[in-house]
Protein backbone atom coordinates (compact mmCIF):
# COMPACT_ATOMS: atom_id res chain seq x y z
CA UNK A 1 0.00 0.00 0.00
CA UNK A 2 1.23 3.48 -0.86
CA UNK A 3 1.22 5.84 2.12
CA UNK A 4 -1.11 8.81 1.59
CA UNK A 5 0.52 11.93 0.23
CA UNK A 6 2.04 14.14 2.94
CA UNK A 7 1.81 17.90 2.99
CA UNK A 8 5.47 18.27 2.08
CA UNK A 9 5.21 15.79 -0.81
CA UNK A 10 2.10 17.52 -2.04
CA UNK A 11 3.85 20.90 -2.09
CA UNK A 12 6.91 19.50 -3.87
CA UNK A 13 4.83 17.70 -6.48
CA UNK A 14 2.53 20.67 -7.06
CA UNK A 15 5.61 22.81 -7.71
CA UNK A 16 7.07 20.17 -10.00
CA UNK A 17 3.86 19.75 -11.97
CA UNK A 18 3.56 23.50 -12.35
CA UNK A 19 7.15 23.67 -13.58
CA UNK A 20 6.98 20.91 -16.18
CA UNK A 21 3.32 21.08 -17.19
CA UNK A 22 2.38 24.61 -16.25
CA UNK A 23 -0.63 23.28 -14.36
CA UNK A 24 -1.26 25.28 -11.26
CA UNK A 25 -3.09 23.27 -8.62
CA UNK A 26 -4.32 25.04 -5.55
CA UNK A 27 -4.44 23.20 -2.28
CA UNK A 28 -8.09 22.31 -2.69
CA UNK A 29 -7.22 20.34 -5.81
CA UNK A 30 -4.28 18.43 -4.43
CA UNK A 31 -6.42 15.27 -4.44
CA UNK A 32 -5.89 15.36 -8.22
CA UNK A 33 -2.18 14.74 -7.63
CA UNK A 34 -2.95 11.76 -5.50
CA UNK A 35 -5.53 10.19 -7.81
CA UNK A 36 -3.60 10.79 -11.02
CA UNK A 37 -0.11 10.02 -9.80
CA UNK A 38 -0.74 7.10 -7.43
CA UNK A 39 -0.80 4.77 -10.45
CA UNK A 40 2.70 5.84 -11.34
CA UNK A 41 3.94 5.41 -7.78
CA UNK A 42 2.70 1.80 -7.89
CA UNK A 43 3.91 1.12 -11.41
CA UNK A 44 7.44 2.35 -10.71
CA UNK A 45 7.41 0.64 -7.31
CA UNK A 46 8.20 3.83 -5.44
CA UNK A 47 7.68 3.65 -1.70
CA UNK A 48 6.01 7.06 -1.56
CA UNK A 49 4.98 10.15 -3.50
CA UNK A 50 8.22 11.70 -2.24
CA UNK A 51 10.22 9.05 -4.09
CA UNK A 52 8.25 9.73 -7.26
CA UNK A 53 9.18 13.40 -6.96
CA UNK A 54 12.81 12.62 -6.21
CA UNK A 55 13.13 10.39 -9.27
CA UNK A 56 11.27 12.77 -11.56
CA UNK A 57 13.62 15.58 -10.60
CA UNK A 58 16.88 13.63 -10.50
CA UNK A 59 16.59 10.89 -13.09
CA UNK A 60 18.27 11.60 -16.43
CA UNK A 61 15.58 9.46 -18.11
CA UNK A 62 12.83 11.76 -19.38
CA UNK A 63 10.32 8.92 -19.62
CA UNK A 64 9.07 9.44 -16.08
CA UNK A 65 8.60 13.15 -16.66
CA UNK A 66 6.62 12.36 -19.83
CA UNK A 67 4.45 9.92 -17.94
CA UNK A 68 3.72 12.55 -15.27
CA UNK A 69 2.79 15.06 -17.97
CA UNK A 70 0.57 12.45 -19.61
CA UNK A 71 -1.13 11.58 -16.32
CA UNK A 72 -1.73 15.19 -15.36
CA UNK A 73 -2.89 16.40 -18.77
CA UNK A 74 -5.22 13.53 -19.57
CA UNK A 75 -8.31 15.37 -20.48
CA UNK A 76 -11.85 14.69 -21.39
CA UNK A 77 -12.07 14.74 -25.15
CA UNK A 78 -15.22 15.35 -27.09
CA UNK A 79 -16.56 15.59 -30.60
CA UNK A 80 -16.77 19.04 -32.18
CA UNK A 81 -15.50 20.48 -28.91
CA UNK A 82 -16.07 24.21 -28.52
CA UNK A 83 -18.80 25.69 -30.70
CA UNK A 84 -17.02 28.86 -31.84
CA UNK A 85 -13.92 26.93 -32.96
CA UNK A 86 -16.07 24.56 -35.01
CA UNK A 87 -17.96 27.46 -36.55
CA UNK A 88 -14.60 28.84 -37.71
CA UNK A 89 -13.54 25.44 -39.04
CA UNK A 90 -16.91 24.92 -40.77
CA UNK A 91 -17.23 28.38 -42.28
CA UNK A 92 -13.59 29.22 -42.97
CA UNK A 93 -10.86 26.60 -42.59
CA UNK A 94 -12.61 23.54 -44.06
CA UNK A 95 -13.96 25.35 -47.15
CA UNK A 96 -10.45 26.73 -47.79
CA UNK A 97 -9.01 23.20 -47.63
CA UNK A 98 -11.68 21.93 -50.02
CA UNK A 99 -10.70 24.71 -52.43
CA UNK A 100 -7.11 23.48 -52.18
CA UNK A 101 -8.25 19.92 -52.88
CA UNK A 102 -10.01 21.18 -56.00
CA UNK A 103 -6.76 22.83 -57.05
CA UNK A 104 -5.03 19.47 -56.51
CA UNK A 105 -2.84 20.81 -53.72
CA UNK A 106 -3.06 17.82 -51.33
CA UNK A 107 -3.42 19.79 -48.09
CA UNK A 108 -2.36 18.44 -44.71
CA UNK A 109 -3.87 18.87 -41.26
CA UNK A 110 -2.25 18.12 -37.91
CA UNK A 111 -4.12 17.40 -34.69
CA UNK A 112 -1.27 17.73 -32.21
CA UNK A 113 -2.85 16.28 -29.05
CA UNK A 114 -5.04 13.69 -30.70
CA UNK A 115 -5.68 11.51 -27.63
CA UNK A 116 -8.38 8.98 -28.56
CA UNK A 117 -9.02 10.58 -31.95
CA UNK A 118 -12.19 12.64 -31.55
CA UNK A 119 -10.76 15.90 -32.90
CA UNK A 120 -9.15 14.34 -35.97
CA UNK A 121 -12.24 12.26 -36.80
CA UNK A 122 -14.60 15.19 -36.14
CA UNK A 123 -12.62 17.24 -38.63
CA UNK A 124 -12.82 14.56 -41.33
CA UNK A 125 -16.58 14.25 -40.76
CA UNK A 126 -16.91 18.03 -41.07
CA UNK A 127 -14.94 18.01 -44.33
CA UNK A 128 -17.05 15.22 -45.81
CA UNK A 129 -20.25 16.98 -44.82
CA UNK A 130 -19.24 20.23 -46.48
CA UNK A 131 -17.91 18.38 -49.52
CA UNK A 132 -21.26 16.63 -49.82
CA UNK A 133 -23.09 19.97 -49.74
CA UNK A 134 -20.84 21.14 -52.56
CA UNK A 135 -21.51 17.95 -54.51
CA UNK A 136 -17.83 17.04 -54.17
CA UNK A 137 -16.38 13.62 -53.41
CA UNK A 138 -13.07 13.61 -51.62
CA UNK A 139 -10.70 10.70 -51.24
CA UNK A 140 -8.02 10.00 -48.62
CA UNK A 141 -5.22 10.57 -51.12
CA UNK A 142 -6.39 14.17 -51.60
CA UNK A 143 -5.99 15.33 -48.02
CA UNK A 144 -4.11 13.84 -45.07
CA UNK A 145 -4.88 14.28 -41.40
CA UNK A 146 -2.16 13.45 -38.89
CA UNK A 147 -3.02 12.81 -35.24
CA UNK A 148 -0.20 12.68 -32.70
CA UNK A 149 -0.09 12.21 -28.96
CA UNK A 150 2.32 11.22 -26.23
CA UNK A 151 0.12 8.32 -25.07
CA UNK A 152 0.30 5.11 -27.08
CA UNK A 153 -2.69 3.52 -25.38
CA UNK A 154 -4.81 6.56 -26.30
CA UNK A 155 -3.58 6.39 -29.89
CA UNK A 156 -4.31 2.69 -30.08
CA UNK A 157 -7.90 3.49 -29.16
CA UNK A 158 -7.93 6.21 -31.79
CA UNK A 159 -6.76 3.73 -34.43
CA UNK A 160 -9.39 1.21 -33.29
CA UNK A 161 -11.96 4.01 -33.64
CA UNK A 162 -14.46 2.59 -31.16
CA UNK A 163 -16.28 4.64 -28.55
CA UNK A 164 -18.60 3.78 -25.69
CA UNK A 165 -21.93 5.50 -25.04
CA UNK A 166 -20.37 7.98 -22.65
CA UNK A 167 -17.79 9.09 -25.23
CA UNK A 168 -20.46 9.34 -27.95
CA UNK A 169 -22.69 11.43 -25.73
CA UNK A 170 -20.02 14.12 -25.57
CA UNK A 171 -20.90 16.11 -28.64
CA UNK A 172 -21.71 13.63 -31.41
CA UNK A 173 -25.04 14.65 -33.01
CA UNK A 174 -27.49 11.78 -33.64
CA UNK A 175 -27.67 12.25 -37.39
CA UNK A 176 -23.89 12.12 -37.80
CA UNK A 177 -23.68 9.19 -35.41
CA UNK A 178 -26.01 7.09 -37.52
CA UNK A 179 -24.35 8.25 -40.72
CA UNK A 180 -20.72 7.61 -39.82
CA UNK A 181 -20.78 4.94 -37.11
CA UNK A 182 -21.86 1.33 -36.81
CA UNK A 183 -22.68 -0.57 -33.65
CA UNK A 184 -20.12 -3.12 -32.54
CA UNK A 185 -21.33 -4.77 -29.33
CA UNK A 186 -21.90 -1.88 -26.96
CA UNK A 187 -19.39 0.26 -28.82
CA UNK A 188 -19.79 2.65 -31.74
CA UNK A 189 -17.25 2.16 -34.48
CA UNK A 190 -16.33 4.97 -36.83
CA UNK A 191 -16.61 4.12 -40.54
CA UNK A 192 -13.50 2.86 -42.35
CA UNK A 193 -14.03 5.64 -44.90
CA UNK A 194 -13.34 8.19 -42.16
CA UNK A 195 -10.46 6.24 -40.64
CA UNK A 196 -8.75 6.10 -44.02
CA UNK A 197 -8.10 9.86 -43.95
CA UNK A 198 -6.22 9.82 -40.65
CA UNK A 199 -2.80 8.55 -39.57
CA UNK A 200 -2.01 8.37 -35.87
CA UNK A 201 1.53 8.46 -34.56
CA UNK A 202 3.25 8.81 -31.23
CA UNK A 203 4.97 12.15 -30.90
CA UNK A 204 6.22 14.15 -27.96
CA UNK A 205 5.80 17.88 -28.49
CA UNK A 206 8.96 18.46 -26.46
CA UNK A 207 11.02 16.71 -29.16
CA UNK A 208 12.40 18.40 -32.32
CA UNK A 209 9.81 18.79 -35.08
CA UNK A 210 12.00 17.32 -37.79
CA UNK A 211 10.46 14.12 -39.04
CA UNK A 212 6.91 15.00 -38.04
CA UNK A 213 5.91 15.40 -41.68
CA UNK A 214 4.04 18.30 -43.13
CA UNK A 215 4.21 21.06 -44.05
CA UNK A 216 0.72 21.60 -42.75
CA UNK A 217 -2.07 23.87 -43.89
CA UNK A 218 -3.94 23.68 -40.61
CA UNK A 219 -2.59 22.85 -37.15
CA UNK A 220 -5.11 22.09 -34.41
CA UNK A 221 -3.29 22.63 -31.16
CA UNK A 222 -6.19 23.38 -28.89
CA UNK A 223 -5.75 23.23 -25.13
CA UNK A 224 -2.27 21.79 -25.56
CA UNK A 225 0.06 24.64 -24.61
CA UNK A 226 -1.93 25.53 -21.51
CA UNK A 227 -0.42 22.50 -19.85
CA UNK A 228 3.13 23.63 -20.31
CA UNK A 229 5.51 26.22 -18.94
CA UNK A 230 5.88 29.72 -20.41
CA UNK A 231 9.27 28.84 -21.85
CA UNK A 232 7.99 25.69 -23.45
CA UNK A 233 4.95 27.46 -24.91
CA UNK A 234 7.19 29.98 -26.65
CA UNK A 235 9.32 27.13 -28.05
CA UNK A 236 6.25 25.20 -29.13
CA UNK A 237 4.73 28.11 -31.05
CA UNK A 238 8.06 28.86 -32.75
CA UNK A 239 8.72 25.21 -33.61
CA UNK A 240 5.23 24.98 -35.09
CA UNK A 241 6.07 27.70 -37.62
CA UNK A 242 8.72 25.41 -39.11
CA UNK A 243 6.14 22.81 -40.13
CA UNK A 244 3.52 25.23 -41.49
CA UNK A 245 2.92 26.24 -45.08
CA UNK A 246 2.56 29.82 -46.18
CA UNK A 247 -0.85 31.15 -45.09
CA UNK A 248 -1.35 28.15 -42.85
CA UNK A 249 -3.55 28.44 -39.77
CA UNK A 250 -2.75 27.54 -36.19
CA UNK A 251 -5.82 27.13 -34.02
CA UNK A 252 -5.46 27.26 -30.25
CA UNK A 253 -8.04 26.69 -27.52
CA UNK A 254 -10.68 29.32 -26.75
CA UNK A 255 -8.84 30.58 -23.68
CA UNK A 256 -5.37 30.57 -25.23
CA UNK A 257 -3.56 33.29 -27.12
CA UNK A 258 -0.22 33.82 -28.80
CA UNK A 259 -0.08 37.39 -27.50
CA UNK A 260 3.16 37.95 -25.64
CA UNK A 261 4.75 34.77 -26.95
CA UNK A 262 5.57 35.28 -30.60
CA UNK A 263 5.33 37.72 -33.48
CA UNK A 264 5.49 35.02 -36.12
CA UNK A 265 1.73 34.87 -36.55
CA UNK A 266 -1.00 37.34 -37.31
CA UNK A 267 -3.93 36.96 -34.95
CA UNK A 268 -7.29 37.15 -36.74
CA UNK A 269 -10.87 36.59 -35.73
CA UNK A 270 -13.86 34.84 -37.17
CA UNK A 271 -17.16 35.42 -35.34
CA UNK A 272 -15.63 35.28 -31.89
CA UNK A 273 -13.03 32.64 -32.67
CA UNK A 274 -9.42 33.82 -32.71
CA UNK A 275 -7.10 32.04 -35.13
CA UNK A 276 -3.49 32.56 -36.11
CA UNK A 277 -2.04 32.89 -39.58
CA UNK A 278 1.62 32.41 -40.24
CA UNK A 279 3.16 35.72 -41.35
CA UNK A 280 4.95 35.51 -44.64
Amino acid sequence: MIPPITEKESTLLREYVERVCGIRLDKAKEYLLETRLSHLVAEYEFASFGELHHNAVNSPDVQLRDRIIDAMTTNETSWFRDESAWRFLREHAAPALLDQIQRNEHPRVWSSAASTGQEAYSFVILLLEIAEQRGMRIKPDQIRVLGTDISQSALFQAIAGRYDVFAMARGMPNDLQSKYFTVSGRMWEIADDIKAFVTFRKFNLQDPFTGIGGPFDLVLSRNVAIYFSEKFRRELFEKTTTVMKEDAVLLLGATESLRGYTESYEIREHKGCAYNMLRT
Binding site: E43, R67, D70, Q152, S153, A154, F156, D164, R186, M187
Partner: peptide, 20 residues
Amino acid sequence: NVGIQNGVDVMKAPFEEGAW
Protein backbone atom coordinates in the same frame (compact mmCIF):
# COMPACT_ATOMS: atom_id res chain seq x y z
CA ASN B 1 -12.53 -1.60 -26.76
CA VAL B 2 -13.64 -3.39 -29.89
CA GLY B 3 -17.00 -4.27 -28.37
CA ILE B 4 -16.44 -7.78 -27.03
CA GLN B 5 -17.59 -6.88 -23.55
CA ASN B 6 -18.65 -9.06 -20.65
CA GLY B 7 -22.27 -7.96 -20.73
CA VAL B 8 -21.97 -6.27 -17.35
CA ASP B 9 -19.97 -3.09 -18.00
CA VAL B 10 -21.34 -0.30 -20.13
CA MET B 11 -18.21 1.81 -20.04
CA LYS B 12 -15.16 0.37 -21.73
CA ALA B 13 -12.35 -0.77 -19.46
CA PRO B 14 -9.59 1.81 -19.07
CA PHE B 15 -6.26 1.10 -20.60
CA GLU B 16 -3.04 1.47 -18.59
CA GLU B 17 -0.33 3.19 -20.61
CA GLY B 18 2.26 1.54 -18.35
CA ALA B 19 1.12 -1.96 -19.35
CA TRP B 20 1.48 -1.11 -23.02
